[in-house]
């Protein structure tokens, strides 16, 4: 289970988010600049909250009450993160990107079949479409066998048809994987389609569930 309760002072507002997730898809929905990505960055370990705690399964990544414990480094959190711009390594082929943190080749093989990007393995990211990049980034993130998956506006750069296909694939993959997924979006239709729970965030505060 993912259990977070974080407080962080930001330049325009204070971020205060509390949520618990079982193996479900939670959508963080809200306007740009409302603190959604900061929440993901805190969970991943890129940023640290000022106060609160972040726990996943039996691991405590951050606990402001335990002053002796340093925040768990990003590398040790076992959290998959799909960045908004996909962050594919431009100097590596799709295959090398996926192999970078791969734990189990069998899982990757299965994922490649699901998302249909096998033919792209020897290609560089600069030569594939937005939808393909999104699929590669998803496979790459899952290849590390993460305990949770964070997705930051994963479909924002895609056209409507590709967006719809990628959303369906994500739902299929979640049915296979059953890990907590936190999806950030400012697109209401997407939030409704993907979220088993939708949390609305505005100026750093959850205002409605």
């Amino acid at each position: 289970m993912l259990d977070i309760n974080i407080y962080k002072k930001l330049s325009h507002f204070d971020l205060h988010v509390q949520l618990k997730a079982q193996q479900e898809r939670i959508v963080l929905f809200g306007p740009s600049g409302s603190g959604k990505t900061t929440v993901l960055n805190c969970i991943a370990g890129i940023l640290h909250p000022d106060e609160g705690h972040i726990r996943l399964k039996e691991q405590t990544f951050f606990d402001s009450n335990d002053k002796r414990k340093k925040p768990t480094p990003i590398q040790k959190r076992k959290i998959g993160y799909l960045f908004q711009d996909y962050a594919l390594f431009p100097h590596m082929t799709v295959e090398q990107n996926i192999a970078y943190g791969m734990k189990d080749p069998a899982i990757v093989k299965e994922l490649l079949d699901v998302v249909g990007i096998k033919h792209l393995l020897k290609t560089y990211p600069s030569n594939i479409s937005g939808g393909e990049k999104q699929r590669v980034a998803l496979v790459r993130a899952l290849a590390t066998k993460p305990n949770a998956l964070l997705l930051d506006e994963p479909f924002s750069a895609l056209d409507d048809q590709t967006r719809c296909e990628c959303q369906d694939e994500l739902l299929r993959i979640h049915n296979m994987w059953r890990i907590p997924m936190i999806i950030v979006t400012h697109h209401l239709g997407e939030a409704r389609k993907l979220g088993q729970r939708i949390l609305k965030i505005n100026d750093g505060t959850l205002i409605q569930e």
């Binding site: 991943a44 990003i74 590398q75 993160y81 960045f83 390594f89 970078y100 943190g101």
Partner: peptide, 26 residues
């Protein structure tokens, strides 16, 4: 893009590995 390094970290890579495989070549 700094996200490239963060992406590598989230995949479990050490600082040293990130430097030699991501930062330095880029």
């Amino acid at each position: 893009d700094a996200h490239l390094e963060y992406a590598a970290y989230t995949m479990g890579a050490s600082k040293w590995r990130v430097f030699w495989t991501i930062s330095f070549p880029l």
